[in-house]
Design a protein around this nucleic acid. Structure first.
Lengths: 248, 248
DNA sequence: CGTCTGATTGAGCTCAGTCAAATTGGGTGG
DNA sequence: CCACCCAATTTGACTGAGCTCAATCAGACG
């Protein structure tokens, strides 16, 4: 089966698709061997919950493929996504015993997990891991702060444009020939997930997407396949400085 | 002068008021000596800008006393606070050359600074610093995510209550005798700063504070001195689980 | 072909924003 | 000590972006 195949492929760190960006990116051969001893893969289907907030968490790990989301929920059911986990992103916090957020597989998901205690031991002996984790955590903090500006100060239209920019930036295959600022991708999120990301209702998300389509900022094929004919235009709509050269 | 005195007092790491919580908290005597060699103090008055976003940043440092804020500004002037820096909090990012945010002294401020390059060198040789910085960054990330829930999903009233809770939790001297959930503190932020923190306008902040006062959730003496007669009540208003035992 | 989930669209309402006018309170100079 | 000034804050009236409730639509799957 495809699933078995894909697992088999990623079984070896040497072939791992995220080896250049994950927590283990800085590790040398020896360190990788140690990690390899304590690692194991877990797969989740779209919609499945990886962990519930408050649950005991005895592993940490990296997203290998697929997308997961970190969400917080209030007693009355209001929910806010607080993290979007893409391949190579790290899940879990060394030194903490319980999950602070719900982690949900947004798409089918493969994770490379390490039992927490051995990982922590290894980390204390392996500065390369801690270094890389610090770097990644600082990046996440920057992303979170960017996101706070979106949540606190942007309009619904700007929020949608911002989210599309973010996804485009990561997921993008520039469509067509030559030098162009056209970008094409598939939305990995439902309208509801987008709403939870942006602090909106799903109706507002839908309306704003329709409006952006009507205004020619985006093109849709089906509900999920998106074409951005002019990335600069989208960045403008997002309220971001469409400043520096190519979006990189 | 008082200023000189307070500087003199904190000149030695041994007497430093934040030594247990700052980046240097894990350092041993030897490591502290090295840090001491490259450190220097800087003072800012309330309202002064410490750094502008985009500026070259050749130092990093810790807040020793006072409060600073990290803010992001859009071209049209909308601003969002993305970090509130209290004593012991770290400013700057090792490995980055320019400031990503505006840093502004919200009150009079004393910082313990390190030139960036020597600090980075020291950090690569001193796991204790990197360890502590990782810990602090993970805490900040948690705080940022908490804040994202506030920005994305809470009502104006809940936002104000949340902010007051946060300040109360840190700044608090429980007022009066015996076991009680009464808390007293001075607001270190103007209405405008609170608005920037919470993604509101200053008028809305003012209105909601008035409403909370009217409803007996808080008491005001002057504009800044706040009494929380019942901390649990406030936590309820914040929409947080007023769950676990004493707020700790 | 019915069903079910996700998405779109509409109508009306509400909370928070905008614009504008008081009010407060601390600081200053006479 | 008092009159005045200025910045911060409060309050009011009105507006509108985004929410709620509800109906409809589209595509996937059995």
């Amino acid at each position: 089966m495809l699933n078995d195949r894909s697992l088999a492929v990623s079984q070896e760190c040497a072939n791992c698709p995220i080896k250049h960006r994950a927590v283990c990116a800085r590790c040398d051969g020896n360190e990788l061997e140690r990690l390899e001893e304590i690692k194991y893969y877990r797969k989740f289907e779209a919609g499945q919950t990886v962990i519930w907030s408050g649950d005991r968490m005895d592993f940490v790990g990296s997203v290998v493929s697929g997308i997961a989301s970190l969400t917080q929920t209030m007693e009355d059911g209001r929910t806010q996504m607080v993290g979007l986990l893409l391949p190579s992103d790290f899940v879990g916090r060394p030194g903490r015993g319980t999950a602070a957020y719900d982690v949900v597989a947004t798409t089918d998901l493969v994770m490379c997990c390490f039992r927490k205690t051995p990982f922590e031991d290894l980390m204390s002996k392996t500065p390369h891991i801690a270094q890389r984790l610090l770097e990644m955590t600082l990046d996440e903090l920057d992303a979170a702060r960017e996101w706070m500006l979106v949540l606190g100060r942007k309009t619904a239209r700007e929020k949608i444009a911002s989210l599309l920019s973010i996804i485009a930036r990561r997921n993008a295959t520039s469509g067509g020939t030559g030098f162009k600022n056209t970008v094409v991708f598939d939305l990995p999120l439902t309208r509801e997930a987008m709403a939870d990301y942006l602090g909106l209702t799903l109706e507002t998300v839908s309306r704003q997407i329709s409006a952006l389509k009507r205004d020619g900022v985006i093109e849709l094929e089906g509900k999920r396949h998106v074409t951005i004919p002019d990335m600069y235009r989208l960045l403008e709509e997002a309220g971001d400085d469409a400043d520096g050269g190519v979006f990189a």
